[in-house]
Amino acid sequence: MSSDSSSNDAWAGFKLWYYTPSPAAAGIYAAVFALLTGYHAFRLIQRRTWFCIPFVVGGLFELIGYIARGLAHNNKDSVPIYTIQSLLLLLAPILFAASVYMILGRLVRVLHGEAYTLIRVNWLTKIFVGGDIFCFMIQGAGGGLLASADTKAEVDRDNNIILGGLVLQIIIFCIFVAVAVVFQMRMNKRPTEAAISGPLGGAKWKRLMLGLYATSVLITTRNLFRVIEYGLGNGNYLLSHEVFLVVFDGLLMIFVLAICVMWYDREISKGKPSKKQNAAYRLESPEAMLEDGRQQNGMKKTMRHGESEPARPWS
């Protein structure tokens, strides 16, 4: 690939850069991502929240991506520099999404709300993280193929692969948000004891859910921007002005990393309730309540037929 590509039909009219990357913007963003990523790494090790590793890896992707953009200021013809920043900034939000998906499953368990999810909690994280990995593979493959494309048809194909991965990521995120909203509505209607007086009880778990929604909106907004950017083709207005990527990609991802600092809560870090908590959940769960109601109705029917009430253990 070359910025002077008039001799190559695959890249006729194509430029690596339609503007000169700002070293000031790249430097500021690299510094901010370095601070946020460093703090996430510190909290991850402190709390042993290994499920948040994608936050740190994604932060490193953003950091290296903006360092590459800073280097591109005086190296606009460098294909490796262009490819590094393009791929890493494209893929970083997928890693942020992976940890966000895992947060919901952990909240459900800590709040003993397994009965309130549209998807079984054991499958909740697997389905969404699996979909996220699939999107990562699609976009990564598309970006890698694009860097080595030799014909115009291959360029269009590879752009469409990336576009398809972005659209799929948006669809998965919308389904995820729907699952989260249904879970919260059911929990609000009939809260568990853990949601009322547990370690994350009261308003605390609701603040965490707000953080989850906020990050979901930010990542989805960024993905929509990328879909429009790729959909409009080479040399479009969005690609020709750096401010759009700086605001609708970099800035939004800074907000995501800043909001996600709240995930390093000791209870969320545990992820699963203890055996004692599980016993309490069985007593308070909707299924247990329903079973108790059935048993009580059965006892009443038995008594109406003249049979004596079974002796209680404490009688």
Rank of each mutant, 00 (worst) to 15 (best):
S3A: 05
S5C: 04
A12H: 02
F14L: 15
K15I: 03
Y19R: 01
Y29D: 11
A31N: 14
V32K: 08
I45R: 12
R47M: 10
T49D: 03
T49F: 05
C52H: 01
V56M: 05
Y66W: 14
A68S: 15
R69D: 09
K76P: 00
P80N: 05
S86K: 12
A98N: 01
S99Q: 06
R106Q: 13
V108G: 02
H112Q: 03
G113A: 01
Y116H: 00
N122P: 07
K126P: 02
K126C: 13
I127N: 08
F128N: 06
F128W: 03
F134R: 07
G142Q: 04
G142T: 06
G165H: 09
L166D: 10
I175Y: 01
I175D: 02
F176N: 09
A180Q: 15
V181P: 14
M185V: 13
R186Q: 01
R190N: 15
P191V: 04
S197I: 12
G198Q: 03
L200M: 08
G202Y: 11
G202N: 08
K206A: 15
M209Q: 13
M209I: 10
G211R: 06
L224R: 10
L232F: 10
G235Q: 03
Y237S: 04
H241I: 13
D249A: 08
L251Q: 09
L252I: 04
L252T: 05
M253R: 07
I254R: 00
F255Y: 06
F255V: 12
V256G: 01
C260Y: 12
V261W: 02
D265V: 08
S269Y: 15
N278H: 05
A279L: 10
A280H: 11
Y281T: 02
E284D: 09
A288N: 07
R294M: 11
Q295V: 14
N297P: 06
G298R: 05
M299N: 12
R304N: 09
R304E: 12
P310L: 07
P313Y: 04
W314P: 12
